[in-house]
Design a protein around this nucleic acid. Structure first.
Lengths: 341, 341
DNA sequence: CTTCTCCCTGCAATCGATTGCAGGGATCTT
DNA sequence: AAGATCCCTGCAATCGATTGCAGGGAGAAG
């Protein structure tokens, strides 16, 4: 039951620790007879190798950090799932790090990498700024981001995998326009942040291309929560010229919008048509079912993990990796007037 | 940018590595002047301590494993959240380990503990059997289970925190009976597994206490998935003496049951009243809103983590810890006939 | 019989931080 | 002035596994 080391095994079998190490790891020469004796002794003594010692000597942890802004958002669980599939195949473990949308926590995650807590990191960040980008670039360990990020100078050392959310919002907006709706509103995230701004552009350009006017009163900067969507919609629905269609930059906000419609006594989609984005499990369960843009989060997780594994295994070491996936519109009842809910 | 060690700092400042270690860790004596010089040098050299070396010498990792059967089930998100709150306060990281409901994977998680990958583990297991119980008992590291588990001999060394799901199902069943429903059905998990059996007993005893007959035809052993609930209900709803009320042992199955009702053209709750258990976020979002028994998963996570922290900090080392939380019924539309959906 | 390989094994250094022990200097006590 | 006390610092061992180097034995080749 006590902790045994290779030294104990060595003593018992009557060989040197190095031989034990070679027998157990399979590296280097080792005679069949001694190897068998060593393996049997290890078995009998219930030997387990010490991870810390291995880490120290081998200079690798076989762990990666997944830094995620918000554990509560179901969006990320699909990513976790995708990442985990790949890690498992490669014999890595996942350390889940919750950054709470805060720069300070992201820097803590980065610090953990500096301390060799893990071999690499996959990060979802809404806080791109000079400070964390510099910190990431200074790392030895590879990092994969899952946001779109346009590097100012093209000098950044990290890879990224992302879905084009500009195109996603554009798809959703064009879908509503295609339903004959001309008076639209948009609720998204902060416009000061790259992702939030790109999504808004998807809306803006779809409107412009259809020759529709853009009204500031019907564009809300919110926070990706259900309540945020609810509040934005509540404001619009009281106006005499309320919108007939609302594009939300994620599903949670779209669900908040639906709730506001319900309270205002408006029917979805007859009075107000709605599209969301993320295509959460939830989207097909709310009433009416929510039309949403699928962002393939599981696939993103898988691809990000694959990219990280490549880096860690030394292949693919030159150049920056970037992979862009295309979103897909999933049409349900919240946006189509001639369907049954 | 290169990796620096305390030896480099020592050389630069002109002291010994031990002094550097003392200055940085704050343990042992160290003069103020030298300490200041050392801290400044560390700062300038961008020094980061090596986690592996620290782990090896200190014999602790400051990580814990959370072994969870199913990453896709939203039930566990809340637990992760609760656990994480406590870990963060104590400066621990979480390694997420996905056991896929498989004994082999649970044993792998245990093996990781034996190899000192983490200092302790919180585990959700539906595979209690002699093999993994023995493996857990043989561990040095503390383990907290979040299932109810009645030890045959009282000799087990692990703690547990759980919600009494027997009482939960009983609450749900009594609620339906209280609505005047006399013809009930129950869909749960395997009866060969402790948790599954206890839940069934909650149903059975509530029925018996109300003087209602128990009919094997209306008890289904399923698998806690939406589809499992769907199939069980489909079978019942075709019968001439279909049940007026269905108790499901979790929300996903309850939602499957609702789907079957919808397809069979039966109204919920007018034709069939339904209660679930878990009180997922989803329960209040489906249509009609699902009455469910809340199992306080976030609180369980928090309590389990607290118990583990106590063990790791050496307090509370004697005796087995057990904490039982009481479930709570949340009444919504799926079970009450005189409400609006 | 000698020489050259080819295996197998042991010695000892190494990864980077921590810590018990002891020595030395400064200050205080009697 | 001698001894006691308190700080500060360095030496060296330690945690447990890995690995380059070299020595030794067996067999093959000449």
């Amino acid at each position: 039951m006590d902790k045994h080391t290779i030294y104990h095994i060595a003593e018992r079998v009557g060989v040197s620790p190095s031989t034990v190490s070679r027998a157990l790891s399979g590296r280097g020469y080792c005679g069949e007879a001694t190897k068998a004796k060593i393996l049997r002794a290890a078995q009998e003594m219930n030997y387990a190798p010490d991870n810390a010692a291995k880490m120290l000597k081998m200079r690798q942890t076989r762990k990666i950090i997944f830094a995620v802004p918000d554990i509560c958002n179901p969006f990320y669980f699909d990513m976790i799932n995708g990442i985990n599939q790949v890690l498992e195949e490669h014999g890595y473990l996942m350390i889940l790090f919750y950054t709470k949308h805060s720069l300070a926590e992201e820097l803590k995650a980065i610090q953990n990498l500096r301390e060799n807590v893990a071999d690499g990191m996959i990060m979802v960040s809404f806080n791109f700024c000079e400070e964390n980008i510099r910190a990431i670039n200074a790392l030895q360990a590879p990092v994969v981001l899952t946001n779109q990020y346009v590097s100012p100078d093209g000098q950044d050392k990290f890879d990224y995998v992302y879905v084009d959310t500009y195109e996603g919002i554009r798809l959703g907006t064009e879908h509503l326009i295609g339903q004959g709706i001309r008076h639209l509103a948009y609720v998204g995230g902060s416009l000061n942040e790259q992702t939030g701004y790109q999504r808004f552009c998807g809306y803006k350009e779809a409107m412009q291309d259809a020759g529709l006017p853009l009204d500031d009163r019907f564009v809300a900067e919110s926070d990706y929560t259900e309540n945020g969507g609810y509040l934005a919609a509540l404001n619009w629905l009281n106006q005499p010229d309320r919108p007939e269609g609302i594009v939300a930059a994620n599903d949670l906000m779209a669900i908040g919008v639906m709730k506001a419609c319900e309270e205002a006594g408006l029917r979805v989609p007859e009075d107000v048509a709605i599209v969301g984005m993320d295509n959460l499990d939830l989207a097909s369960r709310v009433y009416p079912k929510l039309t949403s843009v699928a962002l393939l989060q599981e696939e993103i997780g898988r691809q990000a993990a694959l990219m990280l594994m490549k880096r860690l295994e030394g292949r693919h070491s030159a150049g920056k990796g970037a992979l862009k996936l295309r979103p897909r519109l999933v049409v349900r009842n919240s946006s189509v007037r001639d369907r049954q809910a």
